[in-house]
Design a protein around this nucleic acid. Sequence first.
RNA 1: CGGGGUGUGGCGCAGUUGGCUAGCGCGCGUCGUUUGGGACGAUGAGGUCGGAGGUUCGAGUCCUCUCACCCCGACCA
Length: 409
Amino acid sequence: MRQSQLFTHTLKESPKDEVSLNAQLLIRGGYIYKEMAGVYSFLPLGLRVLNKIEGIIREEMNAIGGTEMRTSVFQNKEVWEKSNRWDDNIVNNWFKTKLKNGTEVGLSFTNEEAYSNILKQYINSYKDLPVYPYDFKTIFRNEARSKSGIFRSREFYWKALYSFSKDETEHNEFYEKAKQAYQNIFKRAGIGDLTYLTFASGGSFSKFSHEFQTLTEAGEDIIYVDEKKGIAVNKEVNTDEVLKDLGLNKKNLVEKKAVEVGNIFSLGTKFSDPFDLKYTNKEGKEELVVMGSYGIGLGRLMGTIVEVLADDRGIIWPETVAPYKVHLIDLRKKQDDKLYQILQNDKIEVIYDDREISAGIKLKDADLIGIPYRLVLSDKLGDKVELKMRNEDNIKVYSIEEVIEILKK
RNA sequence: CGGGGUGUGGCGCAGUUGGCUAGCGCGCGUCGUUUGGGACGAUGAGGUCGGAGGUUCGAGUCCUCUCACCCCGACCA
């Protein structure tokens, strides 16, 4: 990508209606555009990051047997009445609209009903289980108040997987796998060290649900972390009884603010029951399917990475989610695109700052945009090229051949 | 939904007890000089002050209504 072709440009100052660091940097860097409170469009750079995150999640979900599909955004009132979640008095954050003929439809705010309803048609026998369908899609929640930049928005892109298992044992087996997959995701996204498996309230079918909470002052949640054991409990379940259950000692817990980047929980038969989602077991008897739910908000994850890793000069993307691997900056009087072409031919993702503007602006922009490898071409370097990592201070000079070898790794 | 605050060129802001042609910085166009950390000079374009109504000789400034945005709280499958 030639930066001269990128229609976005950076902002020196933050828009006044954004207080949170994640939204400030993402807007200043040209990653997102605020449409209204709690609603953001993703610009070219932002979409690339979102796609990278999606790729990581997809790989991890597929690795544990997930099968990707796409549920509709419009939702059928009758389906939701089965689980008693259509009524606005019960679920207060629905967006609803009407067809021309007056039929009410809802806009997805979660996916349990859609999946339960669809899978009912395909699950008949124990031979059909277990299955793990999931999707990425935009969902809508009419939050009373959106806040914290892209942490809590009214429209957001998420991944939801639902597990359909024959019994508790089979469910628990998958649940543990999912837990591990989630940890892989956050590790690969560069926030593994700050993300804690956190015990939270479980609802009617299990003692606990599990949240993945990333430590940051920008978070909305309070958690209590046992750093040695590497786990945490959410404030909402931080009681003596729970701590005893988990074998945690109050003295080892530290109170922290955190943001929930993912959560998984066991649903038991909460949905299979109202949807009459049953299968016939080996003995010819009907049994209810045991379900689980596994969600991640991609925008929130993206915001969290920004929030946690940024420095005072801008964003610092981990290579795994960066929009490009390399930011090539040409400071020479006579610019040419030779190195850009070489990088392109070697399939190294590169954004090339070919703009005819001052060196200072290019360097400042590179820091703000936060791409991991920075290559600088300059008249004072001759045929050599300078390499600097966004998250390091030292600069090294290499020949073109050498730097290509490094970047190919 | 309760409380507090803010709306003035693309972005960030100033605008006094109502008074003349609404300013400043950044950004943008043109010319020239610059070229390793958001360069400098000259010159130019761009706003009708969130919206509607009202008071007044006169409203960015006062009043009423309204919309949007931000913060705190409540809420958060």
